[in-house]
Amino acid sequence: DEIHIHFNGVTIEFRGLTEEAKKALEEAIKRGASEEELKELARRLIK
Rank of each mutant, 00 (worst) to 15 (best):
L41D: 00
G32M: 04
H4G: 02
S34Y: 02
H6L: 06
E13C: 14
A33D: 08
G16T: 06
A33F: 08
H6Y: 04
F7R: 03
E26A: 06
A28H: 04
G32F: 08
I5S: 01
R43E: 08
E27H: 11
A21R: 01
E19D: 09
E2A: 14
H4P: 00
V10K: 12
T11V: 13
E19R: 12
A24S: 09
R31V: 05
R31C: 04
K30E: 11
G9N: 05
A42M: 14
F7G: 01
F14W: 06
L41K: 00
T11Y: 10
T18F: 04
R43C: 05
K47L: 15
G16K: 09
A21V: 11
I12Q: 01
L38R: 00
I46G: 05
I46C: 15
L17F: 09
T18R: 09
I46E: 04
L17T: 01
A28K: 02
F14I: 13
G9T: 02
A28W: 13
H4D: 03
E13I: 15
L41I: 06
I3N: 05
L25R: 00
A42F: 15
R43V: 07
I3M: 10
E26W: 15
L38V: 11
E36N: 08
R15D: 08
L25F: 11
I12S: 01
A21W: 12
R43G: 02
A21E: 12
A33P: 02
I3G: 08
S34P: 04
G9V: 02
G16D: 14
I46Y: 11
K23P: 04
K23I: 11
E40I: 09
R43M: 14
K30R: 11
R43F: 14
R44V: 08
L45D: 00
N8R: 04
K39C: 13
I5M: 05
E35P: 12
G9A: 01
I29P: 00
F14E: 01
R44I: 09
E20L: 09
E35F: 14
L17I: 08
A28N: 01
K39W: 15
E19A: 12
D1C: 14
A42C: 04
V10R: 07
K23Q: 11
E13G: 04
R44E: 08
L41E: 00
L25P: 00
L45I: 08
A21D: 13
R44D: 04
K23D: 07
R15V: 10
G32D: 03
E36C: 04
E19L: 14
S34A: 05
K47T: 14
F7C: 08
H6T: 08
I5D: 01
E35T: 09
E20S: 09
I12K: 01
E20T: 11
K39F: 15
D1Y: 14
E13R: 15
F7L: 13
F7V: 13
I5L: 11
G16M: 07
E2L: 12
E19V: 12
F14A: 04
G16F: 12
E2V: 15
G16L: 07
E36M: 08
R31F: 12
K39I: 15
G32C: 05
G9P: 02
E37D: 06
D1T: 10
K23T: 11
F14Y: 06
R44F: 12
R44Y: 12
A21N: 10
F14P: 00
E26F: 15
